[in-house]
């Protein structure tokens, strides 16, 4: 009896993890520089606000599309647990690719980026007209303290770990949803 070869999802997970990880990093950096190039006007919703949306959308798509490709390629029925595992791997790869780019960029390519972001964000807080002066000062101090934490390699690693963990969990869910939406259903004879 010939052994049945289990279809591998690793290639698809690497492909989508890399593709969406790089895309999320490039778009995030583009939005960050767009924000730094703008005049601080005290607005709450800035190009920086879009970074979270972009990362969330692309991150969630990673697990969903990896499962879709695996389901279409194999044409076999899949279980929700398989989708969860594929989503987990794809989400972890997304985190690794986007995390490495982020660390390399902020530590080696443009080390002053974090400082410039902090200064711009503080200037934006100062331009906010509807905040009382006392709370404004307190918020500026809190923002500065947060940036100081994130400036260190360990601080950045901790932030990446936390965000990465969330992305992995998100992809476990989108992987499971991918099975429900794209995989062939088991038929009753």
């Amino acid at each position: 009896m010939e052994p049945v070869e289990k279809p591998s999802y690793m290639n698809d997970a690497v492909r989508y993890g890399a593709l969406f990880g790089i895309a999320a990093s490039v778009l995030s950096l583009a939005l960050t520089y767009l924000y730094l190039g703008s005049e601080p006007d005290g607005a709450m919703f800035t190009p920086m606000s879009m970074v979270g949306i972009v990362v969330c959308l692309l991150g969630a798509m990673t697990g969903l599309l990896t499962v879709r490709t695996v389901a279409k390629t194999t044409g076999l029925p899949m279980k929700a647990g398989q989708g969860a595992v594929i989503g987990l791997v794809a989400g972890a790869l997304f985190t690794v690719f986007s995390g490495v780019i982020s660390v390399v960029w902020t530590q080696l390519v443009d080390p002053s980026l974090t400082d410039r972001m902090m200064e711009h964000m503080i200037a934006n807080f100062e331009a906010m007209a509807n905040l009382p002066a006392e709370s404004k000062e307190q918020m500026i101090d809190a923002v500065a303290a947060e940036f100081e934490k994130q400036k260190t390699f360990m601080g950045q690693l901790a932030a990446l770990g936390l965000n990465g963990l969330f992305n992995v969990v998100l992809n476990v869910f989108t992987g499971m949803i991918g099975v429900a939406v794209f995989a062939k259903k088991e038929e009753v004879l």
Binding site: I53, V55, C56, S135, Q138, M139, A142, E146, A159, F166
Partner: peptide, 20 residues
Amino acid sequence: PVTWIGSWQKAVFASVCHQD
């Protein structure tokens, strides 16, 4: 809102929401 800026809850969701 000052406590919110440095909170772990904000940090957990920072990469997936604009938190406006």
